[in-house]
């Protein structure tokens, strides 16, 4: 029998997708408007608000911070997360069951509680620098993605291939890099990119840990919005949407976007 969907349901879904995409199109429209206030449909066409992003020195500065932070935090997280995911997949019997849940804890603890707790214990308590605190916070935030996405790749990896390499005399560590890693490459790249976008977009953890001189792009955007409600915000938003497009392209190349519905 052919699939039939009730027309009312189709109409409703069309409405939902207009609701989902419409606001983002509005932002693009307001970003190119040749006015000093936010308006839609745009009046005239101008790229000057994009140029203005680089006039407000805090924007390029926080962009660099956010980018560096995302790369470092994701790398750190993968460095501890990949071995953990490997251990969970390879030695299922040897490790206690609850261990898998430990790595998902950062999702269970509200981000804002994590941010506040890091401020209280790490930044103020131990006296760690703003950079260190941010790095720890973001690495924790993205760890669940790293462990789970890499874990999903490892679960479909046949470990007997690795055993074959080892029994032929390849050292274990080398077998991992030569045999296992190339096979889970897609998972590692997808984990990196999803972790990266999570870190770039984070507000709830960073808001407690940014300080004088060091801020991230979303926090700077929030601060800017409180003082100026101008099309610069829309222009930065469009740039951030560009990052989303880049991220989606990479995910589509590696695991396919349908991965996100599983």
């Amino acid at each position: 029998m052919k699939t039939r969907i009730h027309p009312a349901l189709i109409a409703f879904s069309v409405f939902t997708f207009v609701f989902l995409i419409g606001p983002l199109i509005i932002i693009i429209g307001t970003a190119v408007s040749d006015t000093t206030f936010l308006t839609f449909p745009p009046q005239g066409f101008s790229m000057r608000w994009f140029a203005n992003i680089f006039e407000v020195s805090a924007f390029p500065r926080t962009m660099v911070t956010s980018f560096t932070l995302a790369v470092l935090a994701t790398t750190l997280s993968l460095m501890v997360g990949v071995p953990a995911a490997y251990a969970l997949a390879r030695f299922r019997i040897e490790l206690p069951k609850f261990l898998a849940n430990v790595f998902v804890l950062p999702i269970l603890v509200p981000e804002i509680v994590l941010g506040f707790s890091l401020l209280k214990s790490v930044a103020t308590g131990v006296g760690a620098s703003i950079w260190t605190s941010l790095l720890i916070g973001h690495a924790l935030l993205v760890l669940p993605y790293c462990v789970r996405v890499v874990g999903a790749s490892l679960n479909s990896f046949d470990f007997s291939v690795e055993e074959a390499a080892v029994s032929l005399g390849c050292p274990r560590w080398k077998a991992f890099f030569v045999v296992v890693l190339p096979n889970i490459r897609a998972g590692v790249i997808a984990a990196f990119i999803l972790a990266f976008i999570t870190s770039i977009n984070d507000v709830s953890v960073s808001i407690f840990l940014t300080g004088p001189g060091i801020s991230t792009l979303p926090i700077q955007l929030l601060a800017h919005m409180e003082q100026f409600f101008d099309p610069t915000i829309a222009a930065v938003s469009v740039l951030l949407m560009g990052v989303t497009v880049a991220v989606m392209t990479v995910v589509e190349w590696t695991l396919g976007l349908t991965f996100l519905t599983k």
């Binding site: 932002i27 989303t244 989606m248 996100l260």
Partner: peptide, 23 residues
């Protein structure tokens, strides 16, 4: 349709909230 759902999901919360301030 999946792309259309993923796109907003991966876009910054600040950006998506800002859109509604404009609206």
């Amino acid at each position: 349709l999946i792309i259309a759902a993923v796109f907003p999901l991966l876009t910054s919360v600040v950006v998506r909230s800002f859109a509604w301030m404009v609206i």
